[in-house]
């Protein structure tokens, strides 16, 4: 296990070092992240300008959801997108061979190989918004702690779905287009799931489980989460993660390796 942590640390430090070759990216993205944040808050303000609450969600509570969304977006940019979009490239260029021949779990290798600093500002802004909204709602440390389990479950779920999608590139080389659709669908996590019409709510709960990513952590913080939901989120995450591992092993059996 220790070796995996050590390797991951090496992966990330070398990744950061490689990125330093293009460091303006970080400046630009921290600026655009800030603009995005201002725009998003402005948008929530517009929605709630004439009404104190919609479907049981107030401005501050929606801000909480937005904070989680920004945070997850940051995580997605920092490790998920950059690694999982590479799977396609590894398959197409045949460099997957090198990864499969390393005596280290290939799913682990593929998932944490790269680390991109551009997402860090979003993670920081996200945490700040959650803290700010939490302060306005008068939440204490216990409430913050309550969000941790569903947040972790949400992250694992997101990772597992994304990885499985990436793994299909063993068969379909043009998967990145599907990934593009998925990451756009995730934008629905910006708002509490209750703000959507019923059909969309169902879609974003059961088909693309955006609800678990941002709304459920916020609900947990607000003390409104059913135990059933929390357990559901944890079970769902565990199942999704196991499924991703099984799916990867299944996919590898079909890996024919790009010829020469």
């Amino acid at each position: 296990m220790n070796r995996y942590f050590k390797t991951m640390r090496l992966f990330w430090t070398t990744s950061l070092a490689a990125e330093m070759e293009y460091r303006t990216n970080f400046l630009i993205s921290s600026f655009t992240s800030l603009g995005n944040l201002a725009g998003s808050i402005f948008l929530i303000h517009l929605i709630f300008q004439r009404v104190p609450e919609i479907e049981g969600w107030s401005f501050d509570q929606s801000l909480l959801v937005m904070g989680f969304f920004t945070m997850l977006g940051g995580v997605a940019n920092t490790v998920l997108r950059v690694n999982l979009s590479r799977i396609v490239q590894h398959v197409r260029e045949g460099t997957m061979d090198f990864i499969l021949l390393k005596p280290i779990d290939s799913q682990f290798h593929l998932s944490v190989r790269r680390f991109i600093s551009w997402g860090i500002p979003d993670i920081a802004y996200g945490i700040l918004i959650v803290l700010y909204a939490g302060m306005r709602l008068g939440l204490g440390p216990l409430e913050y702690a309550a969000a941790l389990l569903p947040l972790a479950a949400g992250l694992v779920t997101l990772y597992s779905l994304w990885f499985m999608l990436g793994a299909t590139s063993i068969w379909f080389v043009k998967v990145h287009n599907v990934t593009y659709v998925l990451s756009n669908l995730l934008a629905a996590g910006r708002f509490p799931i209750a703000l959507y019409p019923v059909a969309m709510r169902l879609f974003f709960t059961f088909i693309v489980p955006v609800a678990f990513l941002t709304t459920v952590p916020a609900q947990a913080m607000l003390g409104r989460a059913d135990w059933l939901w929390l357990i559901g989120a944890a079970v769902f995450a565990a199942v999704a993660f196991l499924a991703s591992r099984m799916f990867w092993h299944f996919a590898l059996r079909h890996y024919t390796s790009a010829s020469s």
Partner: peptide, 15 residues
């Protein structure tokens, strides 16, 4: 983008 030495260190850790 990095010196080969960095890749070698990663390989050393993996192996």
């Amino acid at each position: 983008d990095l010196p080969a030495m960095d890749s070698l260190k990663i390989n050393a850790s993996i192996y």
